[in-house]
Amino acid sequence: MRRRDPIGGRPLLLGTTLVLVAAVVILPLASLVLALHGTTPATFAGAVLTPRALAALRLTVGSALGASIVDVFAGLYVAWVLARYRFPGRAALDALIDIPFALPPSVTGIALAVLYGAHGAFGAWLEAHGWHVANTQLGIVVALTFVAFPFVVRTVQEPLAQLPAAFSEAAASLGAGEWTTFWRVTLPLLGPALLTAFTLALARTLGEYGSVIFIAGNIPGRTEIAPLLIVTRLEEYDYAGAAAIAVVLLAVSFAMLLAINGFQRRMTLARTTL
């Protein structure tokens, strides 16, 4: 049985949406995948399985994982403090969280490079205490942690605010301490939101380029991230090599997106709007 939809315009608007998505998203990404046309598995492996490319991919994934884990803890902590307490300056602190998201990548890059560089305000102090940040993997992790921090806080903030107060009060009335309540009651309820936050942070940090290249040192095999290797291959006009590494990164991004959508569908408390 077909019934006419009272809201008209479906063919026109659905068609427009599909055409725009096809032109903006599908066309370029399809071109990227098609650029591998003529690439045999052997040449693909020759581009991706070199020690340099493997090191870059390992570094990128490792740093992104590290930064996302740090962000989940730090972000949850900050979100929890902001949700639990009312204090003067709370709105200002809350506003600060948006800054890494607002800052353009190249701006973040040069600011962090100077601040954490050997002569910078933080860098000099850290160097004196044996911590080398600039030109090391630690520098990459610092930049990625900075960039992804708001994703975590903003993702967990809303479900945290919506947690029924009755839960924690009930727990407290049953004699549970603050930490017990947090670990046993709050955290499990936040699970899906934290998982989404982690995946969002990971998706963002895996592809990050602008803010990292200024602080990373970019030493092949040691501090050269995969997106930078793509740019290098491109400047050598090794399109096939660039495309091969890009397709690997694209596949990882796609998996992340599927994961995020999967988590979000299961989430009852959270909806992420960044």
């Binding site: 990548p105 793509i230 990164l249 694209l250």
Partner: peptide, 29 residues
């Protein structure tokens, strides 16, 4: 209409694509 979730995912895709990969894809296009 059918395929809503897939369309939604395609719209979101640029969020998770590395900017460099996006640039390369556009250059190839």
């Amino acid at each position: 209409f059918p395929g809503k979730a897939a369309l939604q995912a395609l719209i979101d895709l640029p969020l998770t694509v590395s900017p460099v990969v996006a640039g390369l894809a556009l250059l190839l296009t």
